[in-house]
């Protein structure tokens, strides 16, 4: 909680010396009572910084996450699937906006966060750097990626920071539709042709390990987890959530009739949970470092949209300024007359 002491000291130099420790005690008591921290409350600088980083990364993930599936809206093979996918990708834009909104309650600025995303200084979930070569990928993303997101996000509905927790409640409600539509698409495809079944298994093989990596590095290798847990920003460790996801997914895979590509995956009677293999953590590091299959493409698309849209945003701001000036001129005329 000593993070950012220079800035805090600079800002608060004229206060009385006991104030910070009293504020810290109040903050700790609020967290201890499981109450929410709200935007205007005092909070330790490290808490604010951790939240902004986590919420921004989450928002960026929603926005970049529109791309891999969005490519299939124009090619979806039935009008019903087209409408579902269109609505789903739209939801993701909405989720990104809810989250940027939560980040802005902490003093972050969306234009600045976008700048950080396109300059590569802030990351998004590495899962979205994998390609989507077939329509089955739409189903598997819904099932695995949205399923993993739900495991991560349901506990965040009780995050200690109020605006973040409230955004997550809204998001989780919609994510449940996302997972269901993905699984339902796969069920339908598995009842279809041989070629469709092969497409589903191929997509499962490609997405399983990257999905397990969505929960982040193992607990022993996750330096920020402890602080986030203490502040109740985060409620479960990476490994706990990963285990939860595996236990949830295995019976669904059986029902679907696909094989999860892990020879070590089996039920452990003694633990009452599944044992499973270790993801290739060096791959995760590579993808995070920017060497995933689609990193450049994803950021380039976001950058292009932002830059191509600049003249539109400027025009709207210019029109608003002109309108305000006109209204003011009318008021003056009225006053003069």
């Amino acid at each position: 909680m000593a993070a950012g002491p220079a800035r805090a000291a600079e800002q608060d130099e004229d206060r009385d010396p006991g104030a910070e420790s009293r504020l810290q005690a109040g903050f700790d008591a609020t967290i201890g009572k499981d109450q929410r921290i709200e935007p205007r409350d005092w909070m330790p600088e490290g808490y604010r910084r951790t939240l902004v980083r986590q919420i921004a990364q989450h928002a960026h993930s929603e926005i970049i996450g529109m791309q891999p599936e969005g490519e299939w809206i124009t090619r979806a093979p039935s009008l019903r699937r087209k409408a579902i996918l269109f609505a789903k990708v739209q939801d993701e834009a909405g989720h990104g906006l809810y989250l940027y909104s939560a980040a802005e309650t902490l003093g972050a600025d969306r234009a600045d966060l976008t700048e950080r995303l396109i300059s590569g200084r802030q990351k998004y979930s590495s899962i979205f750097n994998y390609p989507t070569p077939t329509f089955a990928d739409v189903g598997v993303i819904g099932w695995f990626v949205d399923g993993a997101a739900i495991c991560n996000q349901v506990p965040l509905c009780r995050s200690s920071y109020g605006p973040y927790a409230r955004a997550m409640v809204r998001i989780c409600k919609e994510e449940s539709f996302h997972q269901r539509q993905g699984y339902e698409l796969l069920l339908t495809m598995m009842r279809g042709t041989q070629a469709q079944r092969a497409m589903v298994q191929d997509a499962v093989d490609r997405w399983w390990w990257p999905s397990l990596m969505m929960f982040g590095p193992p607990d022993g290798d996750s330096p920020n987890s402890a602080a986030s847990m203490a502040w109740k920003i985060k409620r479960h460790t990476n490994d706990e959530l990963r285990q939860r996801f595996v236990d949830m997914t295995v019976p669904q895979a059986e029902k679907l009739g696909v094989t999860l590509p892990d020879p070590q995956l089996r039920w452990n009677e003694k633990r009452g949970r599944h044992d499973f293999g270790t993801p290739d953590w060096s791959e995760l590091k590579r993808v995070i470092a920017g060497d995933g299959p689609c990193n450049d493409e994803r950021v380039a698309r976001r950058t292009a949209a932002h830059e191509d849209g600049a003249w539109v945003r400027e025009a709207a701001a210019a029109h608003a300024a002109k309108q305000a000036a006109r209204a003011q001129a009318r008021t003056h005329e009225g006053a003069a007359a």
Partner: peptide, 16 residues
């Protein structure tokens, strides 16, 4: 076709 290419995120939602 505008999806992920709109000039602002709010317009993504509107166009969709």
């Amino acid at each position: 076709e505008w999806c992920t290419r709109a000039p602002e995120l709010e317009e993504e939602v509107a166009l969709a």
